[in-house]
């Protein structure tokens, strides 16, 4: 009898054992379903042997083949990856430099500068898009350049909205830097540049990786701003998908999207692995 009572006591969830409460479990499962059910459906129906893509008609890979043979889609895909790659590299460099400037130096009007830097994050995307389009037309940005230079306008627009994210992430990381480490390096004979290379940049690395990841995904799936800055020869993947969907929702679109999801997952996994390795090194 006493033994039975003890067992009952053990089975009652403790105040912090949220995972053992039925109600919270239901919410957890429910939110997972709402988040991932559409994506999983998208992936499953990319293998559907039906042109209308409404009911399941059997497994096929033919739409992957079709997507691979769709030159317009592949071109858009390559454009998107190129823009994302270039804008990520430049955003990370600019963002890191901005973060160091704001962390390291005191100068007049620092607070307004810091605020203005975050503007691209808060301004509605549609306004940014219109402003970018107006700007490029106003300065007469050439539209007839050869690949990849014709992607310049889109790349610049993407850098504009993604580098503030990098700057903010790196700045937050730098806030926890122990300035005595920098002084210790100089005390041991390191120059300003050596201190930057050997002490400060290794410390910033997790922030740089996180910033790069964010910049890459922001650029890869941006639609609104890209829409306003792209021309007929500079179609990116989201814009291409949009125009295909306007025609009809074929499994081809699903197939292309699935490939994009796979690429994003691989990229994220690599970045997270890099980050966990560097945080094992440092803090």
């Amino acid at each position: 009898m006493a033994l039975f009572a003890r067992r009952r006591l053990e089975e009652r969830p403790g105040p912090l054992a949220y995972h053992r409460r039925l109600f919270l479990r239901l919410i957890f499962v429910g939110s997972l379903v709402f988040l991932y059910a559409p994506i999983i459906t998208l992936i499953i129906f990319s293998f559907n042997n039906s042109r209308r893509n409404i009911v399941w008609r059997g497994f096929t890979l033919k739409y992957y083949e079709k997507a691979l043979n769709n030159d317009g889609l592949i071109e858009a895909f390559v454009n998107s990856l190129t823009i994302a790659g270039v804008s990520t590299v430049i955003s990370v460099i600019l963002g890191a430099m901005t973060a160091i400037l704001l962390w390291r130096f005191r100068f007049p009007f620092k607070a307004p500068v810091e605020g203005a830097m975050a503007l691209p994050i808060v301004i509605p995307e549609i306004c940014m898009g219109v402003a970018m389009m107006a700007f490029f037309i106003r300065i007469g940005w050439p539209t007839d350049l050869i690949w990849p230079f014709n992607l310049g306008a889109i790349t610049i627009a993407h850098i504009t909205f993604s580098y503030p994210f990098v700057a903010m992430i790196v700045r937050a990381r730098l806030a926890s830097f122990n300035r005595e480490e920098e002084e210790a390096a100089k005390d041991l004979g390191a120059s300003e540049w050596q201190t930057m290379r050997d002490i400060i940049i290794p410390f910033m690395t997790p922030g740089l990786v996180a910033g790069a990841l964010l910049a890459f995904t922001l650029s890869l799936d941006d639609f609104v701003i890209t829409f306003f800055t792209s021309g007929p020869d500079t179609v990116t993947f989201p814009i291409k998908v949009y125009s295909m969907v306007r025609f009809s929702v074929t499994p081809e679109v699903n197939a292309a999207s699935t490939v994009l999801i796979a690429i994003t997952i691989v990229f994220t996994a690599v970045a997270m692995w890099l980050q966990s390795r560097s945080s094992q090194d440092g803090r």
């Binding site: 122990n178 005595e180 480490e181 210790a184 410390f203 090194d281």
Partner: peptide, 14 residues
């Protein structure tokens, strides 16, 4: 030619 031991030690963590 002067070196210092800092209050927080400032050992390079990485």
């Amino acid at each position: 030619p002067i070196n210092m031991v800092f209050q927080s030690y400032a050992v390079f963590p990485h």
